[in-house]
Design a protein around this nucleic acid. Structure first.
Lengths: 360, 360
DNA sequence: CTGAAAGCGCTTACAG
DNA sequence: CTGAAAGCGCTTACAG
């Protein structure tokens, strides 16, 4: 069997230190100036005589020359790096967004600095500063609880920022704003539930100081209202976007209510998973006794028991667009403030097995 | 309510471009040379007169000066960056390792370049090269299927590498090797299962061209042998470390065997989840009809239905140690090959609800 | 204890 | 079409 870990003869080959060649080496070997080498390599718009270009390229290939990105960054005023800030890489949602970011950036030569704030504001501040010190070309911030101060600092340093799912009513300190249109997904979810025959609902929201939490909740209410169900009839419990918070909210719903809801909509999948966990602990069967809908469509949602019906976020696309738009900004006129961009990405209902007609 | 997203008066404050001061500005303002400023800021061992130091520090504070990390990298021959390569950030296992890496590195001023290979060898090669171009101080490779070529290339460039859970029989091209001691966890798992009364076992392995897959499997066999259960009695199916692969392996186990096993040990949690999914699809109840044990202890394992009993990897610690040891190497004598290091981290059984005495 | 100078490896006006 | 020169913002021997 071929061992992919590579045990074979290749080991014999001695590890000989590679003599890192510089642009000067190439220039000398090719008999041109360093400026010329730089120009053919950096895709400058300066015209180069084909013969010269070929000669340089040949030497580059022969020497295996690769420009030192650090030097290039210092003189070129661009690092081709972007900082990505997340609150928790453990959340598969962010992981998938990051994949999109990387896929968009890699072909253009961008590398990513990863920063995990762990929900810690000070840590976030530290990370922001280190990113500025490293002269990243841009920053992508992937969570709603973004300190206004960070944005101001970044803007002050003229570093474009992309934010996702953030209050649009806040003046755009950021250069790119990726909005999520929850409407289609939530509308479909409500129609699905109402069509199944549900009339008694509860909602587990995210932290209500976050605009996105309020938006998800209000939209759910509005869509229900369209079917004659008044906000007053809907029990809302505040969660924290984590499993445990969802579970606790579910406890409160199950405990305090005489008339149990037949369907619960949680503002994200993690909390929906928590709700299902609590239901199970109480021998409530999902979906027979209780329908549950989440939001995000992280992979564990598809593999929970039962598989979770959920309002899917375009996770990968969010990341890909976040990076694409950011790079577009970076290509624009260098000086001065960039003109802010804004795009909206739609959600979509994914029906799995956590929803069914209510018992009675 | 205080809106953490920050809508308040702070918005009024105009975003004024910050005049990035350089070391020259500081030097002039403080009336010293740039060399002196550099020395007080970079913690050089050169002695500085306290008065001078204070004066410099005062100006630094006043100007809000922060050294340009790019320039510092170019002249200092160190970037204080490390590349982290994972095959799939979507896997919470890697996410937690990365947290450990970041936590160890941040206090020392290290930032992380993230590289997601997506199981794509060519992409991995591209990433490795970009990391070299960026002159990372070190690289941490977080998966078993590591191309020998990458290691050779990195070694040739004199870039220390930390690898995790990799065949120790391979000559240490890497500088730091984090080994995982599966023994205690797997032994406890077997004792747990045997103690429960199980006698018929199956194993879902990882890809068998990976040494770590063989190691996990063999250790499981060995421990069972200690309880009088011969390898011949254990049905082994090869998986791929993913949910679907686990599910397919489970299908084969359930289909092809007259005598169904009462307990299945999967070489990682993802596959264990797949096994449970398939069991559920066949109305086999876990743990009543079938006990399942995984390995890793990613967070979804604690929240599956039922919660998964698993051999826990010291995920965070792996990352923390990987980075700590790497940094230790970096502090060592600059020139020449570093003396390879090797450490071993133990696994541990976490008993949850996917295991119980067999029916008959 | 501190400064002048060279240098890290590129890019980019500025000439020609 | 190409080169000489200055410069990006630091660090580090080398002197003193």
């Amino acid at each position: 069997m071929k061992d992919r870990e590579g045990r074979g003869s290749e080991l014999k080959q001695a590890i000989r230190p590679i003599k890192m060649s510089t642009i000067t080496d190439v220039a000398e070997e090719a008999g041109v100036s360093r400026a010329t080498v730089s120009r053919v390599l950096s895709g400058s718009d300066a015209p180069i005589r084909p013969a010269t270009r070929e000669k340089v390229l040949a030497v580059v290939a022969k020497l295996g020359f690769r420009p030192n990105a650090v030097a290039r960054s210092l003189s070129g005023k661009r690092t081709f790096t972007v900082g990505v800030l997340v609150s928790d890489i453990g959340n598969p949602f962010y992981a998938e967004v990051i994949k999109g970011v990387e896929d968009a950036g890699l072909p253009e030569g961008y590398n990513l600095f990863l920063g995990n704030t762990n929900f810690d504001l000070d840590r976030g501040t530290t990370l922001i500063h280190s990113l500025i010190d490293r002269r990243v070309d841009g920053v992508i911030i992937l969570f709603s609880r973004t300190s206004q101060e960070w944005l101001t600092t970044l803007a002050g340093h003229n570093i474009p920022v992309t934010v996702v799912d953030r209050d649009p009513s806040i003046p755009p300190l950021e250069s790119v704003s990726i909005n999520v249109d929850f409407r289609p997904g939530i509308r479909a979810a409500v129609e699905h539930l109402v069509g199944l025959g549900h009339r008694r609902f509860a909602h587990v929201s995210g932290p209500l100081d976050l605009q996105t939490s309020r938006r998800r909740r209000d939209m759910f209410m509005e869509e229900l209202a369209a079917h004659g169900i008044k906000p007053g009839q809907i029990q809302c419990e505040e969660g924290d976007f984590h499993i445990e918070g969802g579970r606790e909210a579910a406890r409160r719903i199950f405990d305090n209510n005489k008339t149990w809801p037949t369907a619960i909509f949680a503002a994200n999948d993690l909390m929906a998973l928590g709700v299902m966990g609590e239901a199970r602990a109480r021998d409530l069967r999902v979906p027979q006794d209780l329908s549950v809908i989440g939001l995000d469509d992280i992979w564990p949602a598809a593999h929970s028991t039962p598989p979770l019906t959920t309002v899917a976020m375009p996770r990968y696309k969010i990341g890909f667009q976040a990076m694409s738009r950011l790079m577009k900004q970076l290509k624009e006129a260098k000086p001065g403030r960039k003109t802010p961009q804004e795009i909206s990405l739609a959600t979509q209902l994914v029906i799995r097995e956590s929803t069914a007609p209510p018992r009675r």
